[in-house]
């Protein structure tokens, strides 16, 4: 064996693993999305039906509902997470024992499993014995006995809350990294030039954080688009279909109703949305770099 071939031989196992676990399922699901395949009737995919699965999606109200639910969820969750993370990072960027301690315990929500978060919030918002439901009721009498997870709007609110609670710490750390890269002199110069604290944050610090905030927003968008675990364990998509996100809907189509062809088509629609956002994000980021280094 020649030495120059050795690297390729060494790469082959990794290549096969990637092929088998990523490329093959992707390609297979893409092909399946153009076929009729009811898992209750056959273990093998049925015949090709062209774009019928995609066309059906465009007219099915359940799918359109999940698309709407996902949009509402993504927009609120991303905006809230980013704003909170930036605010927390601004509070935590100073160094000192208390700041360091707070930073350390801040990571805990992110370390929790999303499914577990869903279960615990479900318990905490139980109108009869949930600690949050009871606590809120005790502080605000008007909130006594509110069936939190039985109300479409409130259920969505709590779903967003769990996600914001889960992701804010991680986003705060990203933001802290970005803040650390801003030269301290710009802030001090602004202070001497006569800027108030608010002006320094909005006029000097945040504009320099544009790139980091953009990355945070796009990453959070992609994660939010895939929202699944908490839906399963917190609301089960309900009440009704009011918290049925796209990922949860796809799961139902595929593994409850066993319509694999349609589920594959839906999965590819979700993939296309995420690819579109990713490409847009990379382009924004590149132009940002160009501006910074020009």
């Amino acid at each position: 064996m020649k030495d120059r071939l050795l690297p390729y031989w060494l790469l082959i196992p990794a290549f096969i693993i990637v092929l088998a676990t990523t490329i093959y399922p992707l390609a297979y699901s893409f092909i399946t999305s153009f076929r009729d395949w009811d898992l209750t009737e056959s273990r093998r995919p049925g015949g090709f039906v062209g774009v019928e699965n995609y066309a059906y999606a465009a007219s099915e109200s359940a799918f359109l509902n999940s698309l709407w639910v996902t949009t509402v969820f993504v927009v609120t969750s991303v905006i809230l997470t980013v704003i909170l993370a930036v605010a927390l990072a601004l509070l935590l960027r100073r160094t000192g024992p208390m700041h360091t301690f707070t930073r350390i315990i801040l990571i805990l929500p992110f370390a929790m499993s999303p499914a577990l978060i869903g279960v615990s919030y479900r318990f905490m918002f139980n109108p009869e014995f949930g600690v949050l439901a009871q606590g809120l009721g005790a502080v605000f009498p008007a909130l006594q006995g509110v069936p939190w997870l039985a109300d479409p709007l409130l259920a969505m609110g709590i779903l967003v809350l769990t996600d914001v609670w889960h992701w804010t710490p991680y986003m705060t750390f990203m933001c802290l990294g970005g803040l650390a890269s801003i030269p301290r002199e710009t802030e001090e110069a602004a202070r001497i030039d006569g800027a108030s604290n608010l002006r320094i944050i909005f006029g000097i610090i945040l504009p320099q954080m544009r790139g980091v905030i953009l990355v945070m927003a796009v990453l959070k968008t992609i994660f939010a688009l895939k929202m699944f675990d908490q839906v399963v364990t917190l609301t089960g998509g309900g009440p009704g279909t009011s918290t049925e996100t796209l990922a949860y809907f796809i799961f139902n189509v595929g593994f409850r109703w066993f319509d694999m062809g349609y589920a594959s088509a839906l999965a590819w629609i979700l993939t296309a949305i995420m690819m579109f956002i990713s490409i847009w994000y990379v382009r924004m980021l590149l132009s940002e770099r160009k501006m910074a280094t020009a």
Binding site: P183, E185, T186, E188, A189, R191, I192, D193, Q208
Partner: peptide, 28 residues
């Protein structure tokens, strides 16, 4: 600092990178 009637020049310049030269000078 803003009420001390001072101006400062920093070692690393401390310019506002997101502003043009004009906006930088104009800021105070």
């Amino acid at each position: 600092p803003k009420d001390r009637d001072i101006a400062m020049v920093f070692q690393n310049y401390g310019l506002y990178p997101h502003m043009t030269v004009r906006q930088n000078i104009e800021y105070p």
